[in-house]
Design a protein around this nucleic acid. Structure first.
Length: 334
DNA sequence: AACGGAATCAACCGCCCTCGG
DNA sequence: CCCGAGGGCGGTTGATTCCGT
């Protein structure tokens, strides 16, 4: 079916900024006769514009009930609140702000509020605290308690050496997120003592771990509701490990979907963000026993493969080799 | 004063939905 | 029920303004 493009079949109509004279013609015509059919209006009003352009000019600028000027603090708060509930439904949001147009609200969001939220450490899409920077800050502590999973001394030393570099390296940053995620949601086939202690560590929030951010990321409601780190091999965690290695196998320029990380581009082309799916799993299962029934098709889960990978990592130097491959470490400096 | 980059926002684009013939 | 005109909507563009150097 497909509707013809805007103003097609109306060749020669003027585009671009409206002049005062055009505004006057449009306002006077609508005041006198109403807009009626927008398509016929331009001809009747003596305007060389397409009907759609007239409608936009009227609804977004010339309408007498439009409130102009700066948004008040209350309006800002209301927009942010409504956006958290409705998303980019600008017209719906606009109905709650008398005198403001959807276009004006949309522009204000994109130019001011979005940046404001980012500056406050809040993700403007999810309206949840950003997990990226705080999780990065807590990585050494997490690695330190991962016991058999990683050589904590080496990891911490590596961290100190590379912290600055990592902060500006987006691809590796995403890998870090995947690593943190895996370490905090996966159980090893035979749980390491360090993993058993993770709960205790989180409780006292040592090692620079941002406890709240970690809880946010996993959708754990409170410290008493942490998932048990048992040997029951939660498949969601295994899935994370598997997804993480999919990322490792690629060279630079890893995508967020490959890694299953928050903060990347997701949803625009209909892909499922695996991390979001996992978050949902956590939530649905009350943070307890985790199932993986809804593992996204974009990140195929191979439990056996994951187990083999973990076995490989737990052999001598496995994790160290991995980190070296990721070029985070220069082994000669350890 | 001149320039360039960033920020702003009016206007446009094109897809989608509704409704009437 | 089908089709297409009309209108609504969210995303994007680009001209203009602002601001720092």
């Amino acid at each position: 079916m497909g509707r013809s493009p805007s103003c097609d079949g109306e060749t020669g109509v003027k585009k671009g900024p409206w002049t005062i004279e055009e505004d006057k013609l449009l306002v006077e015509y609508i005041k006198e006769k109403g807009h009626g059919s927008w398509r016929r209006l331009p001809k009747l009003a003596g305007l060389n514009r397409c009907g759609k352009s007239c409608r936009l000019r009227w609804t977004n600028y010339l309408r007498p009930d439009i409130k102009r000027g700066r948004f008040t603090d209350d309006e800002e708060k209301l927009i942010i609140h409504l956006h958290s509930l409705l998303g980019n439904k600008w017209s719906s949001i606009a109905t709650k702000l008398p005198g403001r147009t959807d276009n004006e609200i949309k522009n204000y969001w994109n130019t001011h509020l979005r940046k404001k939220l980012l500056g406050m450490g809040i993700d403007p899409v999810t309206h949840r605290p950003r997990t990226d920077l705080s999780l990065l800050a807590g990585l050494p502590g997490l690695l330190a308690v991962a016991g058999n999973f990683v050589d904590s001394g080496a990891a911490t030393a590596a961290w100190n050496m590379n912290a600055l570099k990592l902060q500006v390296d987006a691809a590796k940053f995403q890998l870090l997120q995947g690593l943190v995620r895996a370490l905090t949601t996966a159980a090893a086939p035979a749980p390491a003592p360090g993993m058993d202690n993770l709960r205790a560590l989180l409780a006292v929030s040592t090692g620079g771990i941002d406890q709240n951010m970690l809880l946010q990321q996993c959708q754990w409601n409170d410290m008493n509701n942490l998932p048990a780190l048992t040997s029951s091999a939660p498949t969601s965690g295994m899935h994370n490990i598997s997804g993480m290695f999919d990322g490792f196998s690629a060279s630079d320029g890893l995508s967020s979907t490959e890694l299953g990380c928050h903060g990347g581009v997701s949803g625009r082309n209909g892909t499922v963000d695996p991390m979001v799916a996992d978050d949902q799993e956590c939530k649905n299962n009350g943070g307890g026993g985790v199932s993986c029934e809804e593992t996204p098709a974009s990140s195929p889960f191979d439990g056996l493969q994951s187990l083999n990978l973990i076995d490989d990592l737990n052999t001598d130097g496995g994790w160290k080799d991995l980190l070296e491959q990721m070029s985070w470490l220069n082994s000669s400096e350890l």
